[in-house]
Write a protein that binds this DNA or RNA. Structure first.
Length: 530
DNA sequence: CTGGGGACGGGGCCC
DNA sequence: CGGGCCCCGTCCCCA
């Protein structure tokens, strides 16, 4: 009995050992097979990733070249943050990190997780590796059995099916606003949206955002501003070109405030709102500061009511320049006027102001100051056919500048009420006819032509005076000598030769001259210090 | 020969 | 319409 018992026990132990050995073998086989299977899966995944990586690389290359092109280069040079935003958004929208986590849970959770995070960080900081990042997402999508499957919740959960169930049951909050995406990085909503979004859509969105940001931030190339494009382009860009040159030449400050100025300039609405400010009008000379606000408001409203003027752009800049000129150069003008000084700077300023004035005139064409006369007839005068005459005047004389100073505003002068104001310089006149004649200064209209030469004149008296050149008539004779003159003012000037009158003296050397122009030339040649 | 200054003619424009 | 002023350009003289 005892032997039987011992034998039975031995057999049982043997059987147990054998069973354990069999279990071990089976487990080993299973483990080996599983390892092999996992290895094969990993290899397949790797190959798949590699292929998709290549594909995405090509796609991104093409897309970037097409959508961003040279603009990206410019933005990179000026505002690298724009590029960053684009890359960041692209990474976010493509499920940066989150989808890869899902991928991790399916294959190798821990290792892949850390690796994917690294990838995400790399992508976020630089655009160069964004393609890699994208590839990972695409792989995750394929492995997650189609778009819309979110894996981020499966972190720590190794059951893909479980993860899939969770994702499908969870409502996806799509955030389609590309701008908000960077603000809320690594949100599931963005991933959800992107995972099922074609690349083309994504690219278009990101590119649009980038373009918008570029326009907003750079402030350059305002002519391409869509809002600005809403208005028809200036029919004659020559005005604008010429004026810009003057602008740059005259006031060379605008360096420090370039940003703000540019911003304001680029904003059409803001520019219009401030440009027609009466206090900033191009005629801001001291003699014209007595304008009634009502008139200027009327002026402004008239400009606005005309709708989209062709020259709004010029108007903007004109006003901006005017503000600067008033602050910088007015003292020079006053000194010149009062002391008889004639520095070239002053002349530059006068010429500048002249050009500015003329340009603004051409630009605005506002008839509002005419209360009795027909505004249209007046405005039709400065047509394109007169542009040359206008610029000829600009280059020629300081007369308009002088007229600006001497003329004054509506209430200046001899006390006579001047209800008729010049549209261009706001100078007041007692009757519409005088306004019309005066405005020829601005428009360049010269209706009186000489029959014996090509000369044309704005006033009939000028033509009559000129015709003495042809007739040789010299009704004014000098009482001190035999000389005769066709004009009385010339005779008066000549009389200074006999009287020795030299009323104009140089403030630097004390030298005296009989004419102001002599003094000016003298100072330009010998005392050109300013 | 050159540059400064005077004389003069002419245009623009305001009063 | 004339007076007047300003400016510019040209010619001439002279140191």
């Amino acid at each position: 009995m005892a032997n039987g018992m011992v034998f039975h026990t031995q057999i049982a132990s043997i059987m147990e050992v054998l069973a354990n050995a069999a279990v071990g073998e089976i487990c080993k086989l299973v483990d080996d097979d599983y390892a092999v299977f996992r290895l094969e899966m990993s290899q397949c995944q790797k190959e798949n990733r590699t292929l998709r990586r290549k594909l995405q690389l090509l796609e991104l290359k093409v897309a970037r070249e097409r959508a961003e092109g040279t603009m990206r280069e410019r933005v990179v040079a000026s505002r690298p943050s724009s590029v960053k935003i684009l890359d960041r958004y692209r990474g976010m929208t493509r499920g940066e990190g989150h989808l890869t986590e899902g991928h991790k849970s399916f294959v190798k959770p821990i290792k892949n997780n850390s690796w994917r995070d690294d990838q995400s960080i790399t992508v976020d900081e630089g655009s160069g590796t964004s393609t890699q990042h994208v590839i990972m997402i695409e792989s995750a999508e394929a492995e997650a059995a189609g778009p819309g499957v979110k894996m981020e919740r499966s972190e720590g959960d190794e059951d893909p099916q479980h993860s899939r169930d969770i994702q499908t049951g969870a409502p996806s909050v799509a955030t389609e606003d590309p701008i908000t995406a960077p603000v809320q990085p690594r949100t599931r909503s963005s991933i959800t949206e992107v995972s099922g979004t074609p690349n083309a859509v994504l690219k278009s969105k990101t590119d649009t955002e980038t373009l918008t940001r570029r326009l907003l931030h750079t402030g350059s190339d305002h002519r391409s501003d869509p809002e600005r494009l809403g208005c028809p382009p200036a029919p004659s860009s020559e005005y604008l070109l010429v004026f810009h040159q003057n602008q740059r030449r005259v006031h060379s400050r605008g360096d420090g405030d370039g940003d703000t100025l540019d911003t304001g300039r680029d904003d059409p609405s803001c520019s219009y709102a401030t440009e027609m400010d009466p206090g900033n009008m191009p005629l801001g000379l001291e003699t014209q500061t007595d304008l009634s606000r009502g008139d200027w408001n009327q002026y402004s409203s008239s400009v606005y009511s005309e709708g989209c003027l062709d020259k709004k752009g010029e108007v903007i800049i004109v006003d901006e320049v005017t503000v600067k000129v008033e602050g910088d150069a007015s003292p020079t003008l006053n000194a010149d006027r009062h002391l008889g000084d004639g520095h070239s700077q002053t002349r530059d300023f006068l010429d500048y102001r002249e050009s500015l004035e003329t340009n603004s005139n051409v630009v605005t064409h506002s008839p509002i100051q005419f209360r009795d006369s027909d505004p249209v007839s007046t405005l039709m005068e400065p047509s394109d056919s007169h542009n040359h005459a206008i610029f000829g005047q600009v280059l020629n004389s300081n007369d308009r500048a002088r007229a600006q100073v001497q003329g004054g505003g509506a209430t200046s002068g001899n006390g006579k009420e001047k209800l008729f104001l010049c549209t261009f310089c706001n100078k007041g006149f007692s009757c519409p006819q005088k306004v019309e004649i005066h405005q020829r200064v601005h428009t360049g209209v010269k209706p009186f032509s000489c029959t014996q030469c090509h000369m044309r004149f704005a006033q009939a008296r000028d033509l009559k005076r000129h015709q003495r050149v042809h007739t040789g008539e010299k009704p004014y004779s000098c009482t001190q000598c035999e000389k005769r003159f066709s004009r009385q003012d010339h005779l008066k000037m000549h009389l200074k030769v006999h009287t020795g009158e030299r009323p104009f003296s140089c403030t630097h050397c004390g030298k005296t001259f009989s004419e102001r122009s002599y003094l000016r030339i003298h100072q330009q040649k010998n005392h050109y210090t300013l």
